[in-house]
């Protein structure tokens, strides 16, 4: 993916770019709002990572102007302001996701990749498939190898989110945000417990596990190539 990082802290930007390049992406850097806006307009990027407070021009206004020009490039807003109000403002300005500083690099990569992927698949498929696992969104049915697996409504949404991001790392906070619609830190390992329940339903008794734990990052659902 081609990613533009607009961040004024040089060290943080370099470290971000290095990490993203190691994950196989092309990265451009911009040090202030003006430069960032110019590049974003011209560069045809897959994802923009925009810091909220920038010299010359603040990040939210850059995003707003891009959206006014009908630029649909997904934007991840980075900010030291992580309160509920700030998040709401960031998303209202046209951001697609909001990440509060300080963040774990794995969290950022997972979110950037989720945003980049979303761009490709605008139309939502009714049946999601990963290996022999099938999720029918209309019939609200989950099947693996032809056998129907009974799931709770929340488990269904959890599985749906994972399958829509099949092959991508999904972090615990992304799950909490997208499946439960809460942004706080639940302190306890609530998500892990939900995941282990889900895992016991879809992987137990099958030869190949689909739901994988990515150490230090989160979870991923994928067909095992090995």
């Amino acid at each position: 993916m081609k990613i533009l990082v607009i961040e004024d802290d040089r060290e943080a930007a370099q470290y971000l770019a290095k990490g993203l390049r190691e994950s196989g992406h092309t990265v451009d850097l911009a040090g202030d709002g003006e430069e960032g806006y110019e590049l974003a307009q011209a560069g045809n990027y897959d994802v923009l990572v925009v810091d909220r407070m920038l010299p010359k021009r603040d990040g939210l206004s850059v995003v707003m102007e891009l959206r006014d020009n009908a630029d649909p490039t997904p934007v991840l807003i980075l900010s030291a302001l992580g309160e509920v109000d700030d998040r709401v403002k960031g998303l209202r300005a046209g951001g697609d996701d909001y990440l509060a500083k300080p963040y774990a690099f794995s969290e950022l990569v997972a979110r950037v990749e989720a945003l980049g992927r979303r761009r490709g698949t605008t139309e939502v498929e009714t049946v999601l498939k990963v290996g022999d696992l099938e999720l029918d969104r209309l019939a609200h049915r989950v099947q693996r190898g032809g056998t129907t697996i009974p799931v709770q409504p929340r488990e269904f949404r959890l599985l749906e989110y994972l399958m829509r991001h099949a092959g991508q790392v999904v972090t615990r906070t992304m799950l909490l945000e997208n499946v439960w619609d809460y942004h706080f830190d639940p302190q306890t390992n609530v998500i892990d417990v939900h995941m282990s329940r889900l895992r016991s339903k879809i992987d137990k008794g099958f030869a190949t596990p689909l739901l994988h734990t990515v150490r230090g990052a989160g979870y991923m659902i994928r067909e095992d190539e090995a």
Binding site: V84, K89, V190, H194
Partner: peptide, 22 residues
């Protein structure tokens, strides 16, 4: 800015559902 009508029973059920497996 982020204030609105909140149905407490819904929130309570959501949170309980989140913690129930724990």
């Amino acid at each position: 800015a982020s204030f609105g009508g909140v149905e407490l029973s819904d929130v309570a059920r959501d949170v309980a559902e989140l913690y129930e497996p724990v």
